[in-house]
Amino acid sequence: MAADTAKVDPMHQFAIEPLFGSDWTIAGYNIAFTNSALWMLIAGICLWIFMIGGMKRAVVPGRWQMAVETMTGFIDDLLEANMGKEGRKYVPYVFTLFMFILFANLLGLIPLPLAMAGLHAFTFTSHFTVTGVLAIMTFAIVLTVGFWKHGLHFFSLFVPHGTPTLMIPLIFVIELISFLFRPFSLGLRLFVAMMSGHVLLEVLSSFVIDAANAGPAYGVLIGGPSFILMIAICALELLVAGIQAYVFALLTSLYINDAEHLH
């Protein structure tokens, strides 16, 4: 029976299903509580529980408090290194962004035993509607800070120092376009990295299942190596989950730095 229904659709894991409230609307738009929203909530609650460990405020920290302080210190150092003293005031935003993406990426990788219970982990960072909104938030902050601090002088960001006068119009257009592409590259990078990893895992797992269904010899010859590769790629995906969250936070801090200091 399993051999007949072993058609694995690697894209099915990204399907959004309304859990309840499918008739909720705001201004005519449907805002049903979906599996995506559920995992956002789970990621948020996990992050909140993680942060509670840092609320003991002991002078000599325990392991959990140390972990929380390491994370805040990590983001603080990142902003300090890229932006200097002004970076301090962006710590709340970048920290929330980084930790939210990190928890979303890591929670999305949970395979068992949730899947056995029929509850499939959903990686909402593999949806560009989500990563796009996060990227646009960052971009909105960059624009707000830039125009707030520098007014129209902000446009000098698009003319690097030492540009020959003749080249200014051309350079300006090129720099403007590259600037406008930032939210897309920011959002798409995370979305593509997360989606590709999950598709790869799904495809490899389908190899294991199909090979095992085709017979014991196939199962050992094809399923075995596929399974080993899958485990290795799971480890790689854990790394990617951290790196992509870090890259998002790093680029956010670099872009805000541009707005803060121009060049």
Partner: peptide
Amino acid sequence: TFASQLFWLLLVF
């Protein structure tokens, strides 16, 4: 799903 994604993301975030 865009409206739902946007709403819940903004709310949670």
